[in-house]
């Protein structure tokens, strides 16, 4: 089954995935409409930042067993039996944040959504865009990512690519960094140097 796979070296920190995620989880499902909605839709993928300013798209791993699910006393968190996606029932959620404490990846957020009872803050996280997938569309974050830092594919396929890359590195000493285009290696080297200089 296809999954969203993150390739951190390719993330350029443009935040397009966050924007697309918020739109995908709005009532209107388009950017202009989403910006006028109340409650304002929010992203469920979160781009973190390193000291040198690089981004990392962080999202729910849909763990199995899922620590959030085990921690959820009202039983609001459940796994969809067909897609294995971990979902939250906003009607059952009591916003106790037990899930957030249990989650090793810090992907839970708490806010009202258009699907939750009006005015109620609920736990919110990635739902693998189950509604889009039902229409044959990839998750919105993947669709928005022009640099392919997020892909939607069979994990075996992605892992094979990584295996080939490592083989090349070990047997032919082709360095990993060579995968980076000149443009980004220049930018990142300078940002890294600046960050180190500022820490002095």
């Amino acid at each position: 089954m296809k999954k969203v796979i993150i390739h951190p070296e390719r993330c350029v920190g443009c935040l397009q995935c966050m924007l697309a995620c918020a739109v995908a989880h709005s009532a209107s499902r388009n950017l202009v409409g989403a910006l006028q909605e109340e409650p304002r839709p929010r992203p469920r993928i979160h781009v973190g930042v390193t000291p040198s300013g690089r981004g990392f798209p962080n999202r729910c791993r849909h763990c199995d067993p899922a620590p959030c699910m085990a921690a959820c006393l009202p039983g609001a968190i459940f796994r969809d039996p067909t897609t294995a996606t971990v979902l939250i029932d906003p009607d059952r959620c009591i916003a106790c944040a037990s899930c957030a404490m249990a989650c090793p990846f810090g992907v839970l957020r708490f806010h009202p959504t258009f699907q939750a009872p009006p005015g109620k803050e609920v736990a919110v996280k990635c739902d693998n865009c189950d509604q889009r997938q039902a229409q044959g569309l990839p998750p919105a974050c993947v669709e928005a990512c022009l640099t392919r830092a997020l892909t939607f594919e069979e994990p075996d396929q992605a892992l094979k690519r990584q295996t080939d890359r490592i083989s090349r590195l070990v047997l032919e000493a082709v360095p990993y960094a060579e995968d980076l285009p000149a443009s980004l290696s220049l930018l990142r080297a300078l940002k890294q140097a600046t960050a180190e200089m500022n820490r002095r």
Binding site: C11, V12, G13, C14, L15, V47, V49, T50, G53, R54, G55, L146, T147, S183, L184, L187
Partner: peptide, 12 residues
Amino acid sequence: QQPACGFCETGL
């Protein structure tokens, strides 16, 4: 503002 958008930062 961090991370800055890599497309804008590279002029792309």
